[in-house]
Design a protein around this nucleic acid. Structure first.
Lengths: 166, 166
DNA sequence: TATTGACAGTTCTAAAATAGAACTTTAGGA
DNA sequence: TCCTAAAGTTCTATTTTAGAACTGTCAATA
C-alpha cells in the first residue's frame, strides 16, 4: 500500500497516520513541542539524516502541521513552528509519552516530568469523556458507523457490527 | 539510526515510538480495538502484505502488547489479543482518531462515532490534568528533567532549560 | 480416495525508502 | 583570502517493503 492511499481511507486513524505515522515525524514533533525550530537544531538533536529531515519537514508543512517563518533575510533563513493544527497534536504526543512513562521506563525513572502551569503540580494526562467527564477505557466504548462510513472489508464490517450491538 | 537504538533512548516518546511508531503497527492496533484477532482477518482488512503482517505481529507480541492465544489444536491456530499493556494504548489510538476527526475528515463527515457506555452519549476524548482535572494544552505545560534524564544534544538541553524557566 | 478450501505463515524478486557522507549556496567575520 | 554557519541537495550502498507465489496441516466435500 502506498502512503498516499492512506490519506484517502475512510478512517480518521489512517488519515492521521498518513501525516504523523512514521518514526521521524513523531520525533520531529516532540522537538517542536520542546521549542526546537531550526534545521540544524533538529538535525543535531535527532541524529536524523539531513535528507530525511528536509523531506519530513516538507511533508509536515504540506499538511499544515508546521509553518515556515523567515527569521533572517540575507541569506534567507526559516524557522519551523507549529500551526494550530500542529498544536492540536499535543494530546497524541502526551499520551504517547505517558504510555512510555508507564510501560517503558528503566530503573532510572522518567526522563522528563510535566508541570501544569494552572495548578503548579506535576501531572499525568488523563483521557476523559467530553460528555460525562469520566475517564475512558477501551471496554467502555461502543463504535457506530458515522456519516462518512464506507464499505470496508467483510472482516472489518463484521467487527464493527458486532461491536455496535454488544 | 536503527530502530533498536530508539528503545534505549532516555525519552518515553522515543521508546514508545520504537513499539508502535510505524504505519502498520498503528493500523494493526486499530483493528485489535475493533476486535479483529486472526491473521487472515488482519490481512484482508488491512491489505498489508502477509510478510509484514507476520513481522509486525511478532514484534507486538515481543513487546508484550499482544498475546498469542491458541483457539484450536489441530492444526494449531492462534488469536492475537491485546494484553493490559496493549489496552493501555487506547488513549493514544483515541487521540489519533480524534485529531483525524477534527482535521482530516472530508465532506462526508466522520467514518466512525464513539459512544460511552456509562453515559450513553456520543463523545469526543478530552485530555485533562490528573491533578486539577482541567483540559490540557501545550502552552500550559512546563517540562522539567526527571530522575531518568541523561545528557542530550546541546540544542535539546538548551530547549529543555529555557522551557523549564518560562 | 482424491479434491478443495481455510488458515497461518514463509520464500522469492523487484521496487522504494533510508543511512551516511560529501557537496552547494549565500553571506558574515578574522 | 580563508573560514564558518545555516539550510539544504546529491550521491551510492544498504535496508525495508510490496506483491505474488508457495508450504504444511487439517477438515469437509465429491
Amino acid at each position: 500500500m502506498k502512503w498516499d492511499a492512506l490519506e484517502e481511507e475512510p478512517c480518521s486513524l489512517a488519515r492521521t497516520v498518513a501525516v504523523i505515522g512514521d518514526r521521524w515525524s513523531l520525533l520531529i514533533l516532540r522537538e517542536c513541542f520542546l521549542r526546537i525550530r531550526r534545521f540544524d537544531e533538529f538535525q543535531s538533536s535527532l541524529g536524523v539524516t539531513r535528507h530525511l529531515l528536509a523531506d519530513r519537514l516538507k511533508k509536515l508543512v504540506r499538511f499544515g502541521v508546521l509553518r515556515k517563518i523567515p527569521y533572517q533575510d540575507a541569506p534567507k533563513r526559516y524557522e519551523y513552528i507549529l500551526t494550530q493544527k500542529g498544536l492540536d497534536l499535543y494530546p497524541i504526543i502526551m499520551s504517547i509519552v505517558h504510555w512510555g512513562n508507564i510501560h517503558m521506563v528503566d530503573s532510572r525513572g522518567r526522563p522528563l516530568l510535566h508541570e501544569h502551569k494552572n495548578c503548579h503540580k506535576m501531572f499525568d494526562p488523563v483521557m476523559v469523556c467530553s460528555e460525562c467527564g469520566e475517564p475512558l477505557t477501551a471496554k467502555e466504548v461502543h463504535v457506530h458507523p458515522g456519516p462518512g462510513a464506507r464499505k470496508s472489508s467483510p472482516a472489518r464490517a463484521k467487527a464493527v457490527e458486532n461491536e455496535a450491538k454488544r
